[in-house]
Design a protein around this nucleic acid. Structure first.
Lengths: 348, 348
DNA sequence: TTGTACGCGTTATCAA
DNA sequence: TTGATAACGCGTACAA
């Protein structure tokens, strides 16, 4: 009969105290030996290490975290897990965290702000050392973030960022990217360029739209609101937005389209094909993010190569530096991108 | 000046005790009110809830876990994060866990057994309530798993499983799937069918090879070892394996190929194209797992649709039931699949 | 209904 | 070099 009751199914593991008792030393000595502290006799250290191995000792990070007020854990909140972009970001986060000895609690908001709030507060309860967040589409109230920061939990935003609330942000220069790819189309000679825009609630949506506008302005072209169709980030939205644009009179119809991202472009392409229009002869189209599928299309998609892994890695590295007090928060970090020129814009 | 010292950057959060002091009640009353226990006066409960909100109280799950010996956290170990399959599995795991009130610590072994062991032991130290594992390619020693199970930490394997060590396994019926798709080729009339095999160290590799063999046997065809080329799970391996097969004399060269998975098939296709052979006229090819790219190829790839989300969801549900003592471990759970017939096998 | 004492496993601190 | 004590924040068990 054991002396204690454990909840059903909970593991019964050896404690440092028990090792100490068996060795006739104190728990502190065991702790010191296990943590490689200098002030412990070589022989006792060896005895402790041997006993720890023999009895299958597993340090209890829960107890350790309680007293140290450190979990060596980072909370990650992404709006979606499938689709090639975020998994690759997560891989970057994981690599950087692993190197620095941090673990990841992964949560996913499913683009829902309630679920995101829920995730953040549970993550706070679990006392993560910091938060890595890419905001959900429906988020409008930023007080949750500010409160966390106020409480002393550092946040680094990535990809879909929130500026000017004291958190660092890691992303590409969305405005500039969209301006560049729009200008690429302008140089091709397209005269009527449309934009399938992302949700205006997230940084990416707003900034890419602004980039599109700026490119037009800089090149003396008129911005026409009717050439901007709300698409969102997914195929379906891109399809619907394109359907809308193709309903314009032949005279007003665009001869080129800048989609907010690749999935949106895929949807638009489907619509274009259904209308029996050719890409790029009848309508040129470009995307952003370089989805794995982009170059496999019949008319491979010209797009902006967005280094997802780098974004994740940099975000995690930045957060860890802030957690360890080696970097002041509030930095704006831009990851550079490059244009992937393929066929859908009329090149090649 | 605060009375206590905290490590640099650690958050200073309100405790139940502090709330209690401000309200002139005991910490226990606060605890009871916050956890919705019945034995607390309605009015005091309201006061506590109001104060908790006012002072921004965040329950400390670390302390709670220490006393309850429960973290409500599941450790996940995947061999890779990119590529469409595992992210989708993770989404299934996340959904099921979220519904049941569990969080996920995500680790990735990068196909390295040392890193996998490392992940498992840290996860144990963090006292996760259970483990969800898909084994790394290089793993040969299963004692790490057995020890964890022996310690009382339930494990559920998914996709790449380890049978007969007392852990439940969730996967497709790899042998049957591979047999089915091989027989599909046989019915097409192909006479010399090759196999690009996965690593023999993981369940999937072994079982799919066996399925391929069985399909041949059942149909009175001779198994020829020279028609099996080691490919591994990635494009590069598939390419190299196919190169090898194409070096066979025209008489021995296969007229159809069963790849262990879609990425391997993609590599093989590249090799086939470089040899200026046509798919499926000169060589038919099929894969398994239904990668997003499969249907975008010039000759869309016939493959087995593998419900990644379902696998993840079922694995998490199973683990949670075991954690909560509602299910005995050691179950073998098969997720059903279907054939996605496209052009690369000669159909359509 | 409410409060007190104690324990969860570890580490910091100070004394030996 | 080592040990005793207290503390981290919470919940169980019991007493009031």
């Amino acid at each position: 009969m054991g002396k204690k009751k454990y909840p059903k199914g909970s593991a019964k593991l050896v404690t440092a105290e028990e090792i100490a008792a068996r060795l006739g030393v104190s728990a502190m000595t065991v702790s010191r030996a296990l943590n490689g502290r200098p002030n412990v006799d070589k022989k006792t250290k060896e005895r402790v290490l041997a006993a720890a191995k023999k009895y299958g000792y597993t340090p209890n990070h829960i107890a350790r975290s309680l007293v140290l007020r450190r979990t060596h854990t980072i909370g990650v909140v992404v709006p979606e897990i499938s689709h090639s972009f975020f998994p690759e970001v997560i891989r970057g986060i994981e690599d950087a965290s692993y190197s620095a000895g941090y673990h990841l609690i992964l949560t996913h908001s499913a683009e829902d702000d309630n679920r995101e709030q829920d995730a953040i507060s549970t993550l706070e309860s679990k006392r993560v050392d910091g938060l890595l967040i890419s905001t959900a589409q429906t988020v409008v109230d930023h007080s949750v973030y500010s409160e966390a920061i106020g409480l002393g939990v550092p946040i680094v935003f990535f990809d879909r960022v929130v500026r000017n609330i004291g958190a660092s942000c890691v992303s590409i220069d969305d405005e500039d990217c969209c301006a560049r790819i729009t200008e690429h189309l302008i140089r091709h000679g397209y005269r009527s360029i449309a934009h399938l825009s992302g949700p205006s609630t997230v940084s990416i949506g707003k900034e890419r739209l602004r980039g599109y506008q700026k490119a037009l302005e800089r090149n003396g072209m008129k911005f026409k609101p009717e050439l901007v169709a709300q698409s969102g980030f997914h195929e379906k939205g891109g399809y619907l937005a394109m359907e809308k644009l193709l309903k314009l009179s032949p005279h007003d119809r665009p001869d080129a389209v800048v989609a907010v991202n690749d999935p949106s472009a895929f949807g638009a392409i489907k619509s274009i094909q259904e209308h029996r229009l050719r890409i790029p002869q009848d309508i040129a189209i470009v995307g952003m993010s370089d989805d794995v599928r982009a170059e496999l299309l019949p008319s491979p998609l010209t797009t902006i190569r967005q280094p997802a892994y780098e974004i994740g890695k940099k975000a995690a590295e930045t957060l860890i530096l802030e957690i360890e007090g080696k970097l002041e928060p509030g930095k704006r970090i831009i990851i550079s991108t490059e244009l992937a020129v393929r066929k859908s814009c009329g090149c090649l």
